[in-house]
């Protein structure tokens, strides 16, 4: 057993701090490109291992997110190959690459949008906030929410879709009026 691992000094601490700062963003990035939660967990974990192993090569002061995006995308594409999963569609790989490219193109905009999200969530009416909590905090599916709230599946699906649209519109307006309004 190695009592003082060579890598666990300042370097390790900087890594942990950086990872903690960007962890949710990284999870959101992977969730954007992978649908199955179990796959997301595996990929995120692999991704963190690679980030840690290659952290020495990351140059402080450069864009961590851009660097992490490259590694994560690589992990996602690799994971699919390694798992020999049947692709969801014949265009899956191009699809993932296209969406990843689009996210990269909009990355600054998305980062700014994230700041407005909190404000916009708070403006939702009570009933809609409860639905959001059910869907995203309690992680219930549309069917479960329908059963629990005595609505049809289709009605819940449409409601969720509408709430997300309202949120997206609100966030876009926030973006237009400047970050100060997002406080």
């Amino acid at each position: 057993m190695n009592p003082t691992p060579p890598d666990a000094g300042d370097h390790g601490e900087t890594f942990l701090r950086t990872l903690a700062e960007h962890e949710r963003w990284l999870a959101a990035y992977v969730y954007s490109l992978v649908t199955r939660t179990a796959d997301v967990d595996d990929i995120l974990q692999e991704c963190k291992i690679v980030l840690w192993r290659q952290f020495a090569r990351f140059q402080a002061g450069t864009n961590f997110r851009a660097w992490a995006r490259t590694i994560a995308l690589h992990q996602i594409l690799n994971y699919r190959r390694a798992e020999q999963r049947r692709p969801e569609s014949p265009h899956e790989r191009e699809f993932i690459e296209a969406v990843a490219g689009e996210i990269e193109r909009c990355s600054e905009q998305f980062d700014r949008k994230a700041e407005g999200l909190r404000h916009c969530l708070r403006k939702l009416p009570e009933a809609h906030r409860a639905i959001m909590l059910s869907r995203y905090y309690e992680e219930r599916g549309v069917e479960q929410i329908a059963a629990q709230s005595d609505r049809t599946v289709e009605a819940v699906y449409r409601l969720l879709s509408r709430i997300r649209k309202v949120l997206n519109d609100c966030i876009s307006r926030q973006l237009a009026t400047g970050p100060s309004a997002a406080r």
């Binding site: 969730y31 954007s32 969406v99 998305f110 999200l117 995203y136 997300r164």
Partner: peptide, 16 residues
């Protein structure tokens, strides 16, 4: 449109 919507959905999941 897809990127915008999936971003929101994914961010909500990640910020659970």
């Amino acid at each position: 449109a897809y990127a915008e919507r999936v971003w929101l959905h994914a961010t909500l999941r990640a910020e659970r």
